[in-house]
Design a protein around this nucleic acid. Structure first.
Lengths: 132, 132
DNA sequence: TCAGGGTTTGACGCAAACGTCAGGCCATGA
DNA sequence: TCATGGCCTGACGTTTGCGTCAAACCCTGA
């Protein structure tokens, strides 16, 4: 483990991050190709810093939230530029609101579905008599 | 409008349903190709009945819920066969539970994101002074 | 010196859910 | 009669988010 620069824990190899977050190196390279990450280079080899790691965390959360990489890319741009880009922030807030609304719809849809399944299950067990 | 069979409102042309639900005829044909719908035929032309319309409603709800057409197909099978397929129902209940859990996670993630956006928005407007 | 392990860049593959022609059939109305 | 409009079946195209080689480079340890 004689890699002083890497041991400062401000620098990560691609496999380090892949392992830490349980994703593939391919995925990480893909995020870079899409402009979501911009790691440094030593020769050809990618070197990730804390900033990159932080961005990766945001990317993964965005994915859990169901946003596309395009959307996440927009979101990440907020963390760069001055944060004074009012219009950008407004746009993002809007997108999150949309997503929130969609989740609310899903929630009520799900309640309906659950009720239906309960009904089906009930009918099923009735037909099966005491064997249910 | 001299189409007595169609005016009984138990029969629909493909375009009727497409228009009613705001989807393309292509999508409807696709659902049929995937076995989710089984409309009748008069010559080559598809004829949809109330049953097909009801299934289409379930399909669209399933999609809103984020399920794949494969999943929805399984779900629909419950509405056919005897409803006595205990195992099937259990399986579906399980899938819905999974989806429910996922939505709950998304919900809390989204709250975090919203809080962050509010913070950014606040910082932005502060920097812009009273002009916000 | 050479195998092994980690890295790189292409480039093709893939599954889902349709979009988008293309070409053809059929019925209707001016 | 012929143009128009709706429906049909292929069949290829598209987008998203990677997976999966392939071929090559570099460093390290036995």
């Amino acid at each position: 483990m004689n890699r002083p620069e890497l041991d400062s824990r401000d620098l990560y190899a691609i496999a380090d991050l892949a392992k830490e977050f349980g994703i593939s190196t391919r995925a990480i390279r893909f995020y870079e190709a899409k402009g979501l990450l911009t790691p440094g280079r030593v020769g050809g080899t990618r070197i990730f810093r804390r900033r990159d790691r932080a961005r990766l965390i945001l990317i993964l959360r965005g994915k859990r939230l169901g946003f596309s990489l395009r959307d996440i890319s927009d979101y990440l741009s907020l963390y760069d530029a001055d944060r004074t880009q009012h219009a950008q922030v407004a746009l993002l807030v809007e997108k999150v609101d949309q997503r929130l609304k969609l989740l609310q719809e899903q929630w009520t849809d799900l309640e309906t579905t659950i009720a239906e399944l309960r009904e089906i299950r009930k009918l099923a067990s009735e037909r099966m008599g005491a064997a249910g």
